[in-house]
Amino acid sequence: MLPFFRSRLSKPKPQLPEGVRVYAMSDIHGCAHLLMPMLRVIDADLAHSRPSHAIEVFMGDYIDRGPDTRSTLDILIERSRRNNTVFLKGNHESFLVRVLREPHLLNDWLRIGGAQTLASYGVSSADLRGDPTNLLRELARAIPRSHVEFLRNLRLSFTCGDFFFVHAGIRPGLPLSEQHEDDLLSIRDEFLKSDEHFSKYIVHGHTPVRSAELRANRANIDTGAYATGNLTLMSIQGTRLLAV
């Protein structure tokens, strides 16, 4: 693991409660083959350091674009049975839930990676034949109930100590308690260009960067796994942030 953070942040540094360690990942996008090695890194670190309280935070966009959404959700659901996990919603999960209610949006979903998700459940978008309702019925039959429950129970954000975890970011100028779901899942420029020191340090994904980007007010750990083969894991303990 490589330290990124200490010299770039003005005091006081954001801090987790004593004894707490957070492991964070974002934008897995169906890359189960990249997720498993990162989970092994977490397990090895837990076995070596034995923190008093470990929390694994996954910050959305588990589905679409990458090759194996189904296995990715299976792995995360199984992980939740053995570890202390927090699962946040991403814009891709939100859009899939909307597509299931509004079939006319199917082609929009396919264009942003839905075809790969369908294929992972054994459903081919080539079977569309002009009727999205039938294709979505086929998906509804193929997707396990545990996956449906997983998608329904995703949280919008998670706070621990001085850190606020969210998929995309926040609307500058609004208190964290008044943020809108659309911004938490999809905001880009207004947040990314802001130098505002928010009430919490924001850890997010959603906008791919070449390597983990740590700034004075936020950290972006979406490194475009499905396109680059690089899934970033961040570990936070006390005031120390490490990324691999």
Score class of each variant (00 low, 15 high):
residue 41 V to Y: 05
residue 29 H to T: 13
residue 60 G to D: 13
residue 43 D to A: 09
residue 33 H to C: 10
residue 55 I to C: 06
residue 58 F to G: 10
residue 31 C to D: 09
residue 40 R to V: 00
residue 33 H to P: 03
residue 50 R to K: 15
residue 62 Y to I: 04
residue 32 A to D: 06
residue 43 D to K: 06
residue 50 R to Y: 03
residue 54 A to T: 03
residue 40 R to L: 00
residue 35 L to K: 10
residue 33 H to M: 08
residue 61 D to L: 12
residue 36 M to Y: 05
residue 29 H to E: 14
residue 52 S to M: 13
residue 61 D to E: 14
residue 54 A to V: 02
residue 56 E to K: 15
residue 55 I to P: 01
residue 48 H to D: 01
residue 51 P to H: 02
residue 50 R to I: 01
residue 46 L to R: 04
residue 60 G to N: 13
residue 34 L to E: 10
residue 40 R to I: 03
residue 44 A to F: 03
residue 42 I to W: 00
residue 56 E to C: 04
residue 35 L to I: 07
residue 49 S to E: 09
residue 39 L to I: 02
residue 33 H to W: 07
residue 62 Y to D: 07
residue 49 S to Q: 11
residue 35 L to H: 10
residue 44 A to R: 14
residue 50 R to V: 08
residue 45 D to S: 06
residue 47 A to S: 09
residue 45 D to E: 07
residue 52 S to F: 04
residue 60 G to A: 10
residue 30 G to Y: 09
residue 30 G to N: 14
residue 61 D to H: 14
residue 48 H to V: 04
residue 60 G to E: 12
residue 54 A to L: 08
residue 31 C to Y: 09
residue 54 A to G: 09
residue 37 P to N: 08
residue 57 V to E: 01
residue 62 Y to N: 08
residue 49 S to P: 04
residue 47 A to K: 02
residue 41 V to C: 08
residue 44 A to L: 07
residue 56 E to M: 07
residue 32 A to R: 11
residue 62 Y to A: 08
residue 55 I to V: 15
residue 29 H to W: 14
residue 35 L to D: 09
residue 60 G to S: 12
residue 41 V to M: 10
residue 56 E to G: 03
residue 61 D to S: 14
residue 37 P to E: 08
residue 34 L to G: 13
residue 40 R to M: 03
residue 33 H to A: 14
residue 29 H to Q: 14
residue 31 C to I: 09
residue 53 H to L: 12
residue 34 L to N: 11
residue 62 Y to V: 10
residue 31 C to K: 15
residue 41 V to E: 09
residue 42 I to K: 01
residue 29 H to L: 14
residue 29 H to K: 13
residue 44 A to Q: 15
residue 37 P to D: 08
residue 37 P to V: 04
residue 35 L to C: 12
residue 38 M to E: 08
residue 44 A to K: 05
residue 43 D to Y: 00
residue 36 M to T: 02
residue 51 P to G: 02
residue 36 M to E: 05
residue 29 H to Y: 12
residue 52 S to L: 12
residue 47 A to D: 04
residue 29 H to F: 14
residue 43 D to S: 08
residue 40 R to Y: 00
